[in-house]
C-alpha cells in the first residue's frame, strides 16, 4: 500500500495514555494539517512518524514497510526552533546533507564533488529566496529566513515525507503568509507528503489538503491520566476511548491537488473519502 498508514497505534507512558487507537491512512502527496489543543498528543504523533518515538502498540507503515525506529533521510523535518546548525553558514547548512551522504568518514566534500554540492545548495537557496545570504551564519538571519533555510536544508536530501512541527508559529503574520506561499510551492513541485502540526486553524485550512483534529474525549480530571488522544468523528470506535484521539478528519474544500510532476505518473488525488461537509 502506498502512503503512510497508522494501524491501531497507541502511545502510553506508563499509566499515562497519550494517544489511543489511531487508525489513519495518508495518501502520497497529501498535505495533512494536525490541529488540536496543547497536550493532545499531536507532537507525540509527529515524533512517532519521525522515528524519534515508537508506538506502544500498533504499527506505522510507509509504502507498506514498517517505519524505521530512528530518524532517517527518507523523512525531512522542520522544527519551530533550532532547526539549523548555528556553526555552519547558510550554504554549508544546505550542503551538509549531501556531505553526510557522499562522505561517510569525513562528512566533507572536496574539489569537484564539493562544487557540485555547492551549486545544488545555491539552487535550493535561490528557490527559497535566500540568494545573497549564503555566507551568513544563521544567527544573523531573521526568524522567517531561518525557517526558509531549514526548509531548503530539509529538501536537499529529497525526502518523500516532510514533517513540520509548528514551523511558522514564531513568525510575524506578514512573514508567515510569504512563507506559506513558499511551502505551497514546495509541496506542489516535489514528490512530497507533508504532515504539519499547527496551532493556527486558518493556517491548517489554507495549506492543508486534509485537516485532522486530535482531542481528549473525556475530561474527568481524576481519570485524565488514562485518556490519550484518538481519532474521532465519523470513525467507528469499537470501545469507548480512554485517551486523546482523532476527533475530526476531513478533506479541505475546495480540494487542492498537487500539480503532476514532470516524468512521473499523475499523482493520486489525496483524499480519505470522509468529507465532513458540516465543517466547510
Amino acid at each position: 500500500m502506498k502512503g503512510i498508514v497508522f494501524d491501531k497505534v497507541w502511545k502510553e507512558y506508563g499509566d499515562h495514555v497519550v494517544l489511543e487507537q489511531i487508525n489513519l491512512e495518508i495518501a502520497p502527496r497529501a498535505f495533512v494539517a494536525l490541529v488540536g489543543p496543547s497536550g493532545c498528543g499531536k507532537t507525540t504523533f509527529l515524533r512517532m512518524l519521525l522515528g524519534e518515538d515508537t508506538p506502544t502498540r500498533g504499527a506505522i507503515l510507509v509504502d507498506g514497510r514498517p517505519l524505521k525506529p530512528e530518524p532517517d533521510s527518507d523523512r525531512g523535518v522542520v522544527f519551530q526552533r533550532y532547526s539549523v546548525f548555528p556553526h555552519l553558514t547558510v550554504v554549508q547548512n544546505v550542503m551538509v546533507g549531501r556531505e553526510f551522504e557522499k562522505s561517510r568518514l569525513l562528512g566533507r566534500l572536496f574539489g569537484q564533488s564539493r562544487k557540485a554540492a555547492h551549486d545544488e545548495a545555491m539552487q535550493l537557496l535561490s528557490a527559497v529566496g535566500l540568494e545573497g545570504h549564503e555566507n551568513k551564519y544563521p544567527a544573523s538571519l531573521s526568524g522567517g529566513m531561518q525557517q526558509r533555510l531549514a526548509l531548503a536544508q530539509a529538501l536537499n536530501r529529497r525526502p518523500k515525507i516532510l514533517l513540520l512541527d509548528e514551523p511558522f508559529g514564531a513568525l510575524d503574520p506578514g512573514i508567515r503568509s510569504d512563507i506559506h506561499v513558499l511551502i505551497r510551492r514546495i509541496w506542489n513541485e516535489n514528490d512530497l507528503t507533508v504532515v504539519m502540526v499547527t496551532h493556527d486553524l486558518s493556517e491548517a485550512f489554507r495549506l492543508g489538503t486534509r485537516v485532522i483534529a486530535f482531542e481528549r474525549q473525556r475530561n474527568r480530571p481524576e481519570e485524565q491520566e488514562r485518556y490519550g488522544a484518538t481519532l474521532t468523528g465519523d470513525l467507528p470506535t469499537p470501545a469507548p476511548p480512554l485517551g486523546a484521539t482523532i476527533t475530526r478528519d476531513f478533506d479541505v474544500w475546495p480540494p487542492k491537488i498537487a500539480s503532476p510532476l514532470p516524468n512521473a505518473e499523475p499523482a493520486p488525488q489525496p483524499t480519505n473519502g470522509k468529507n465532513d461537509s458540516a465543517l466547510h
Binding site: 532517517d72 532547526s83 536530501r157
Partner: peptide, 13 residues
C-alpha cells in the same frame, strides 16, 4: 538542542 541531533539524522548523518 535535541532538534539539531534529530535534524542531522534526517539528513542522513
Amino acid at each position: 538542542p535535541r532538534e539539531q541531533i534529530i535534524k542531522a539524522q534526517t539528513l542522513g548523518a
